[in-house]
Amino acid sequence: MKFNIKPKDSMKKLLLTIAFAVAALSQNAYSQCSDRSIKKLTKEGLGTFIFESAAFKPLSAFGNKKSLIEAAFSVYSQEHYRVLNLCQGFSDVVEFNIYDTDRNLIFSNKSDKSVTHYDFIAQKSGDFTIEFRVPTSDVKNPNPCVAFAIGSNKEFATA
């Protein structure tokens, strides 16, 4: 069997194919911080908790040297909340710390980084803070994602 394609044409097609494949692969590398994946993780992680809010950004959006990333979220007194650490694409689980309205540390996964969520009852209304400590250089993924979600328990209240 003979091919009617000239070698020159086939080379062009091969190069085009490789370029297309590389483009597809690099696109995949950026899919860590997509709304679809974060939504899916949020739904799974919140379980019976009701969605309150979520936020996500590629690490590159914070600048190359930023290692401490913070976000505030509102809570009501005596309400039951869940905070999800949804950071993705880092070589290790990102350390996250949660501070109460008076900036007291109430949770850290520093000693057990496998813990990716924290449930708590707010003692008073106000803003809690979630803090992420991220590695400044990470070779596993070209663009890791910093993300979190908050949920509240619709049934539970201590009041």
Partner: peptide
């Protein structure tokens, strides 16, 4: 190459859903 490329993307689509929007 195509199989690898699209194979990976298919896995990603299954995980992330289609018509993804990236931040």
């Amino acid at each position: 190459l195509l199989t690898v490329a699209f194979g990976c993307n298919q896995k990603s689509d299954k995980e992330n859903g289609a018509a993804d929007t990236t931040a």
